[in-house]
Amino acid sequence: MRIGYYPGCSLHATSREFDESLRATAVALDVELAEIDDWSCCGATSGHATSHLLSVALPARNLALAEEQGMQEVLAPCAACYNRLASASHSLREDAGLEIKIKEILARPFANTVRVRNVMELYRSLIPQITEKSAGRLKGMKVACYYGCLLVRPPGVLAFDDAEQPTSMDEICRATGATSVDWNLKVECCGGAFSLSRTASVIRLGRAILEDARKAGAEALIVACPMCHSNLDFRQSAMTQSGETPMPVLFLSELVGMGLGLSARDMGMKRHFVNTGPIEKRATETAAQVAAEAAAKAAKAAETAAKATAQAGTAPAGKGVA
């Protein structure tokens, strides 16, 4: 499988581990990520706050490049990039006037044929492979899937999952053997881009999210958005009261990677602010236990088979084994 890849700025900077882990899992799952040559900004944050036209023109340029480079689908891991690219593509489909304007600005052929995918969509399509290759390695690990605000909204545009009760990330986590807990704030806002300008709000919102996940028994919070990650990871010390155990915040790709048995080092997990050591250790434990259980099961199966063969000696031939 080959898919276009639009990393966006975050994955080259604050969320490099998202990029690294995603690439690592892609290799393990036989997916070729073809990075769009000469990609530029998607128009999130300041871009779309300044001008609507700009907020469509910037993603349109990247989509046009992808089209030129023969891609049918483009993976945009960052939630903001994904939202911008998909929204722009949607607006262009809906608004013929806008389409004419944008084509003029682009000055290159553009048919708006590329489908924009996010990480959840990609992994969801790979659930059979993940299930097979992970063999339930993370069985017993409890995680809270945090979708945040951008990944599934607005519902009219990003119609791949329910906007208020999404489940695709939960399904992916379950494919690794982990348990996704039922909790309340999976689509609440983390404060997003206000991390610097209104830090107090971000801390208040983030604390509520972490507390609810902790109450539900989660050992780690799973995200698929660089913004959510930086808020909840980088600012977690301010969101946590003394005596509380810190909650590792993992990218979905990192969890899938752990499920596939990839090393934390290869996935860049050392860059996290909240120490991921305990969760890595926990993964090793669950893997060992799953392996032990599998071995025990295999041994038992062998024993039964042996017994059956022994009996087959006395029983009419060919019947006992079946």
Binding site: P155, D162, A163, E164, Q165, D182
Partner: peptide, 18 residues
């Protein structure tokens, strides 16, 4: 609940049924 006929989107945010 979550299962809706075409054109209606439901109210996942109110947790009806869960």
């Amino acid at each position: 609940g979550k299962d809706q006929p075409a054109g209606l989107t439901g109210y996942g945010e109110y947790g009806y049924g869960t």
